Amino acid sequence: MTVPEDRCRLVLIVPDIADMEEQAKIVADALRGGDVASVIIPQYGLDDGTFQKHAERLVPVVQAAGAAALISGDTRVAGRAKADGLHITGNVAELAEAVEKFTPKLIVGGGNATERHSALEVGELRPDYIFFGKLDGDIKPEAHPKNVALGEWWASMIEIPCIVMGGTDPKSALDVALSGAEFVALRAAVFAEPANAPAIVAEVNALLDEKAPRFED
C-alpha cells in the first residue's frame, strides 16, 4: 500500500462504545478501508482500569493496520498498552509536562488551542502535532470554520503538523485538506453507521487523492 505522504491524511477517533470487542471490531473494519495515519483512543467516561483494558485491546488492532495508536486520557495507560503516543486535551502545562516526560519515546501532541495566541504557546513546546477542535466536536456536517481557519493559518507558517477536527459529513475532510492542514480527524463521519465505516474510509481517501492539495517537500 502506498502511503500518501504528500497530501492531507486521515486520523480516526475511536467512537464511544462500551462493549470492548464490538469497539475493536468496528475500528479494525474501518482501518481496512484504506490509509489512516493514526487513531486517537479517548477515555470517554471509562474509569482508568476499564480504559486500560480497552486500550490494550485497541492498540494492537491499530498498529496491525500500520497506523499510530494515540491514547487520550490517563498517560499511564499509554505505557502499559504499548501505545505509540499520547493525545493531550488539557492545558498548555499538561502538554508541556507530557512533552518533557515522554518525547521522543512516544508521539506527543494535542492542544486546546482555540485561538492564535494559545496555538503559538503550544507550538513553543515543540509537540509532534497540534490539534484544532475537540475530539467530540463533530456536531455539524461541516468542520468548524474557526478550526479550519486556524489550521490554514498554522499550516502556512509553522513546521509542526496540525490535525483539524472534521464534521459529521465525510466530505468535510476535503474542506480541511484545502486549508493546507496535514491531517483531518473524523469520528461520527466514519463511525455513525459502523457497517459503512470501511467504505467511508475508502471514499475519504479517494476524495483526498483526487482533490487534496499536494505538499511541497
Rank of each mutant, 00 (worst) to 15 (best):
T2W: 04
V3S: 13
P4W: 04
R7V: 12
V14N: 00
P15R: 05
A18K: 12
E22N: 05
Q23P: 01
A24D: 07
A28P: 00
D29C: 09
L31V: 08
G34N: 08
D35R: 06
A37M: 07
I40G: 06
I41H: 01
P42S: 12
F51N: 03
K53V: 09
E56V: 06
V62L: 04
G66L: 11
S72V: 00
D74Q: 14
A81T: 08
G85H: 05
L86E: 04
H87W: 08
E100V: 06
P104I: 07
V108N: 02
A119T: 10
R126D: 15
D128L: 08
D128W: 02
G137W: 12
I139F: 14
W153G: 04
W154P: 03
A155H: 10
I163Y: 12
G167L: 05
K171G: 09
S172V: 06
S172N: 13
V176E: 02
G180A: 14
V184Q: 01
A185V: 04
R187Y: 03
A189W: 01
A189T: 06
V190F: 04
P194R: 13
P198A: 06
A199T: 11
E203T: 10
V204R: 00
N205R: 12
A206F: 06
A212M: 11
A212N: 11
A212C: 15
E216M: 13
